[in-house]
Nucleic acid binder design. Structure first.
Lengths: 108, 108
DNA sequence: TTTAAATATACCATTTTTAGAATATTCGTC
DNA sequence: GACGAATATTCTAAAAATGGTATATTTAAA
């Protein structure tokens, strides 16, 4: 996985308004207008933030007539999970080593 | 967990140089000078970036004489994992391993 | 085919973030 | 206690991201 892909996700979430949009979408998919109204944002800004979230793979768009319904999308979160697990692994291994050490102690 | 805490971690990682510093530290703890040299950054910038990573709980400092050795720190990654798991739950099947790890953390 | 609603884009101002250079601080050694 | 090495901080300029307003685009309905 390219660093650029990771960065796109981190940069997308690292903005308070986009962070709030993701949180709101946890309660279900919503149109641009609904998101803007719910959070008190202007429509153009909301569209721009959604575009960034979309490019990061964190949301997907469903077109219905002249409405655009935004849903949370798995891909972006998976990217984050992949990145994270390569670091988390480090402490998991530590626990494993401790575990192995304790077992050896037991045996002696 | 407060949104501010999540934001500090996302904003910390959402910078290419800080991203590279974290990656470098995976190969082991290093002094400011070693990090700056390895990545071709100037020392003052390196210190500033490390400060932001530290405030996010992603690194810790070990003081040895007039040197400062920076290590990866679990806390910041756990914060990210907590945030992620609240979203990942909706897609359950994937990232089982990370999810299982985080649940163990919760219990301890 | 004109109109209104919903959304996206473009453009410019503004705020925030980062970089660079100089300086301060801390620690060990002479 | 003076000096050099390692790191942190401060200040200003530059760069990047965000906000606001106007406008374009698309769609349904009159």
């Amino acid at each position: 996985m390219s660093d650029a892909k990771y960065m796109r996700v981190f940069q997308a979430v690292a903005d308070e308004k986009r962070f709030e949009i993701l949180k709101l979408l946890q309660s279900g998919a919503k149109t641009v207008g609904e998101i803007a109204d719910s959070l008190g944002y202007l429509q153009p800004q909301t569209s721009k933030h959604l575009k960034i979230l979309h490019q990061a793979g964190l949301v997907r768009v469903e077109a219905v007539a002249n409405k655009r319904i935004y849903h949370l999308e798995k891909d972006g979160f998976t990217v984050l999970g992949d990145w994270l697990s390569s670091y988390i692994q480090r402490w998991e291994d530590q626990l494993d080593r401790l575990d192995a050490y304790l077992k050896e102690e037991e045996e002696s």
